[in-house]
């Protein structure tokens, strides 16, 4: 049985509306208008143990709502949802014992206490045995390189340090499933790489299932064997990264470095995206224009120093997919 099963999950929010300005504020005292926002319009998916699933979508698409329902924080309006065989919000306490959660924009550490004291507090909250705690603690400190910052109060940590500590905090009780809501938000390039390396190792060595929401496509490319795209409260796409590419566009990009940058560049079925000096960026669909033949024709007609073919960047794929979402 899959570790996460979601079927036809729905969640509506009632948002109080107020007209702008003083008069609007006064009117709001007497008469409240409510707007219904449908955050989830019946989504469904399942996740097997040990998978790393990227969950992406534009802001307001319903990513965080899904994660919060899966974490037992929010109660949905309709639909079925089971994690490890439990309904998260109905058996919340038993459910959360076995999951870890990181909301990238917030910290779960005690602001005024040294990092290590937050860990000890979580150890007591999750009733982790001393031996198991020691092992898990040493492992996390080594892998996330926390040794030097354990005695620092959380309020003095940099964002990258804080995120590493938050990751460790979510894993103290050795959960077999973690939800990461934008774990790399605001981090610099080095810190992002550290987080990705750690997550990859975590999945590989401990078999932890990871559900990750992000806006950073490098996270997806580096970590996720599977990508789910949500838009306007519906799942738009679910599958491998390659599958997603194929669904949106089979196009490839051909980058050609010429000996001599000038001159027209026209071939059938090929569009010139842009030129940068001696470099020309072309786009074509290999199903209509076979790659080998195209390269041959280009090499015959131009003085080519170098050329290479690549997929469309994932950002481009996602942008096209988002554009298809009915507004």
């Amino acid at each position: 049985m899959p570790q996460i099963v979601v079927e036809d999950l729905q969640k509506r929010y009632h948002v109080a509306e107020r007209t702008a300005g003083l008069w609007g504020a006064v009117r709001g005292l007497v008469h409240r208008r409510h707007r219904v926002v449908e955050a989830l319009k019946g989504i469904g998916f399942s996740v097997e143990r040990g998978e790393v699933v990227g969950y992406i979508g534009p802001n307001g698409a319903g990513k965080s709502t899904t994660v919060k329902v899966l974490a037992g924080i929010l109660v949905p309006d309709a639909g079925r949802c089971e994690v490890n065989g439990r309904v998260p919000w109905r058996e919340r306490i038993e459910h959360v014992r076995r999951i870890g959660v990181v909301f990238g924009q917030r910290t779960q550490l005690w602001w005024d206490l040294p990092v290590v004291e937050s860990f000890e507090l979580l150890r007591d909250i999750y009733k982790v045995e001393p031996g198991a705690y020691r092992k898990s603690f040493d492992d996390l400190v080594a892998r996330l390189d926390l040794g030097a910052i354990l005695d620092t109060p959380v309020r003095q940590l940099s964002l990258g340090q804080r995120m590493r500590c938050d990751l460790a905090a979510s894993l103290i009780h050795a959960p077999d499933l973690i939800y990461l809501d934008e774990p790399t938000i605001g981090l610099d390039a080095v810190a992002k790489l550290a987080v990705r390396d750690f997550l990859r190792e975590l999945n590989r060595t401990r078999g932890v299932t990871i559900l990750l929401t992000t806006h950073d496509m490098d996270d997806i490319e580096a970590l996720c064997s599977r990508v789910m795209v949500i838009g306007e409260g519906r799942i738009l796409s679910d599958g491998t990264l390659d599958g997603l590419r194929a669904q949106v566009s089979g196009e490839r990009r051909l980058i050609v470095d010429l000996e001599n940058g000038s001159g027209a560049f026209e071939h059938e079925g090929v569009t010139v995206e842009r030129r940068e000096g001696h470099r020309v960026f072309l786009r074509f669909d290999p199903r209509q224009v076979p790659t080998a033949g195209l390269i041959g024709r280009i090499a015959a007609r131009h003085a080519v120093r170098d050329l290479f073919v690549e997929h469309l960047p994932i950002e481009e794929i996602i942008r096209r997919l988002y554009e298809r979402i009915p507004a």
Binding site: G72, E94, V96, V101, F103, R106, I125, K127
Partner: peptide, 14 residues
């Protein structure tokens, strides 16, 4: 105020 209350509900505590 900050939404950090979400973490409170992810603890196995009453």
């Amino acid at each position: 105020r900050t939404g950090g209350v979400a973490y409170e509900l992810t603890r196995p505590l009453d």
